[in-house]
């Protein structure tokens, strides 16, 4: 048994090594002195300097963040409203909306992407920031609805009725009674929306216009040449995501420990 456990740990760590190999590589080579992608010749910050000096690159970070933030806010608001409406709707409407929402979630991204591209072209909408944003909002909403619906199903219907009986307007009932109870679903929906939008390449590639690139489409467009400043950009993303993930996982732990200590002190 002991030997077995040893083998199990080794196997898991080998898989982890596979997962982290390219990340370590990118971070290391972002500090490379030369342009080579295979030989590390010395430490330098030139690729970071180049990254900050390359306007298109900085713009791609800006657009990725901006689109992700707006798409998250808009799709979370719309998704929450629709989910609440759906929970009171007839079974037919529920089924129709669920099936339609399944389309972008089950279809390959490339099909959703060319569908939107053809739509924009048919309606004569010039592609650019606006179409990119519209596309992102469109594919985020179904995920938000999907993460809120289970919370709504657990909700006690009588609570909202009670609020109305006690003199709340429907809007007050919504915002004082229903929303606080489904908050968890809304937050996880927003997180999914943000990740989906920030990570998206395929749909962005087909729905954006000239001059508007997010990080994904920028990296795709520059891969024809060797460009080590992409490594610097990647390192920044790795750093940001690690920081967010560690903070969001460690902070609750610290908080919990402090609360425990406070209790002990009291």
């Amino acid at each position: 048994m002991k030997k077995n456990k040893w083998f199990q740990k080794l196997y898991v760590w080998l898989i982890m090594a596979f997962f982290y190999l390219p990340i370590v590589y990118v971070v290391l080579f972002s500090f490379n002195e030369s342009k080579s992608l295979t030989k590390f010749s010395g430490f330098s910050l030139r690729w970071y300097e180049k990254m900050f000096a390359t306007r298109a690159m900085m713009e791609s970070i800006y657009y990725s963040a901006l689109i992700a933030i707006i798409a998250t806010v808009v799709s979370t608001i719309i998704g929450t409203i629709v989910a609440i409406g759906l929970s009171k709707s007839s079974r037919l409407i529920k089924q129709v909306v669920t099936q339609v929402n399944n389309l972008p979630m089950l279809n390959p991204d490339i099909v959703t992407a060319i569908g939107l591209m053809l739509l924009f072209s048919t309606l004569n909408v010039p592609t650019g920031f606006f179409t990119l944003l519209l596309a992102h909002i469109t594919f985020c909403i179904p995920y938000v609805i999907l993460s809120i619906m289970p919370k709504l199903r657990q909700l006690d219907e009588n609570l909202a009725e009670a609020a109305l009986d006690l003199g709340c307007t429907p809007f007050q009932a919504l915002y004082k009674v229903i929303i606080p109870q489904i908050r968890e679903g809304i937050v996880s929906g927003a997180l999914v929306a943000f990740t989906m939008s920030f990570d998206d390449f395929v749909i962005s590639y087909f729905t954006t216009g000239p001059g508007i690139n997010n990080i994904s489409t920028y990296v795709y467009a520059t891969t024809k040449r060797i460009n080590p400043s992409v490594n610097a950009l990647s390192t920044l993303i790795v750093l940001a995501i690690t920081l967010i993930l560690v903070l969001s996982n460690v902070l609750p732990l610290i908080k919990a420990r402090r609360m425990k200590n406070d209790e002990k002190a009291a």
Partner: peptide
Amino acid sequence: MVTLPQLINMLVRTYAWRGL
């Protein structure tokens, strides 16, 4: 640890493999 690399942009990860 399995989730973290997934959150990093897919294009960026693939680009890293290209160099590797």
